[in-house]
Design a protein around this nucleic acid. Structure first.
Lengths: 238, 238
DNA sequence: GTCTATAGGAAGATAGAC
DNA sequence: GTCTATCTTCCTATAGAC
């Protein structure tokens, strides 16, 4: 994930005493923007808006701090763009599920759903979208980026976008997936619980705490192994 | 709420040019601690751990910044104590509901529950605890304080307490209220959704957005009027 | 019990070189 | 397209007076 941003160019000779960083490879601005946004998503997801620094983002992206600011103007703008990106990924993931379902491409997946929860389009889509949501946990940044925006409501610009973004998601599951308000609510609630469990890093104590184990199993079901694996990878990288 | 902390002592003569603050009334340390914790809860709830300053807490409590630090040692300790306090209030609120239910003191409230959701002890307690939870929204600080701790998992000390605190709550609803793991999960999920809606300040756009209206109504039900009122009061207080 | 003064250290943003 | 140097502001924590 961040390995791609680590590439640097130079003489090959290791710096001796200087701690200054090597000049990054020259790449097109648009591409650099994308790399910075990816790095920023990880940093903001981890530490929140106020807790992150543009220098941390710069280091994660393998460039200098002023360059990050130069490209996005302010830290706030950077956060907002990373937020848009994360939300876009989420909406796209849901829409892909809906499109695939309506195209009849998910007959295999339908076998594994909980039949007791209902067999209509909304009920099945709800379950399929929940799986798609859990899949996003693998890229820890996406979901936590959104979560961090949700608790930054006091920042006027961020709060406004967070509100709009949340309502966009609600409308998608209600109108495009066809869920009733109450079903949509329950769906979102499960999502917020997953976010929370990830936020408190519950997977990290899975083996040492049987309560954590039960709650995680009950919430993540078939996706638990993947989440546990991602959690361990995270700690190694962290 | 914070008006009690505004009291100052002095000659009564308004300062002319000085911007320095008046010396606060001399009160016992234990009492001062409580006032600071209350103020800190509001500040941290609003802006998160990283986004809050000890000076903001001090101002909210009507005392000087160094005095806040003097009393709690570090900002982190202050946060942790405010977190304990908030969690304690939540646990107490739930336990009071359970005790009152088991003492047969809630016959009136039982009339207003959704009978379709079940009539056993766990099902009824779940609904009653949900109401108690929503009631806590009125004191916006409690729930958002917890929420802010949940997304600050990267701070080792805070993350550890947040994990433990969340599991404490889960165990309470499972063991003391007697909910099945799946029911407890759904209960917590609804709570996290409420937190999120409050976090993004959805009540503030209730009148201007019909989607927000629908989602809030569907999530908060009978508690919506109270939440809307609290939201308006909050905005006035700034 | 409470304050003022301030040390010491980030962090965001700007200027300007290459 | 990218960096180094730096200005300025803000923040936590300490020292010490009252």
């Amino acid at each position: 994930m961040s390995s791609v941003a680590k590439k640097t160019v130079g003489t090959g000779a290791p710096e001796t005493t200087s701690t200054s960083q090597a000049t990054a490879e020259r790449i097109p601005a648009a591409q650099r923007r994308a790399l910075i946004l990816e790095a920023a998503t990880g940093v903001f997801a981890e530490r929140g808006y106020a807790g992150s620094t543009t220098d941390q983002v710069a280091k994660a992206a393998g460039i200098s701090q002023p360059y990050v600011v130069r490209m996005f103007g302010t830290k706030e703008t950077l956060f907002l763009e990373a937020l848009d990106r994360a939300q876009g990924k989420l909406l796209r993931a849901f829409r892909e599920v809906i499109a695939a379902y309506d195209a009849g491409e998910l007959t295999e997946e339908l076998q594994h759903l909980d039949a007791a929860a209902g067999s209509g389009r909304p009920e099945q889509l709800k379950q399929l979208m929940a799986i798609a949501y859990a899949d996003l946990i693998e890229d820890r940044g996406i979901l936590m980026m959104l979560m961090q925006a949700f608790v930054a409501g006091h920042e006027p610009a961020i709060g406004a976008r967070a509100r709009e973004g949340f309502l966009d998601i609600y409308r998608l599951v209600r109108d495009e997936a066809g869920l009733l308000p109450e079903t949509a609510r329950d769906f979102l609630a499960q999502g917020m619980l997953m976010n929370t469990l990830i936020g408190i890093r519950l997977p990290e104590i899975y083996e040492q705490d049987s309560t954590a184990e039960e709650l995680l199993e009950c919430t993540l079901r078939s996706k638990l192994p993947m989440v546990l694996k991602a959690s361990k990878a995270q700690r190694r990288a962290g």
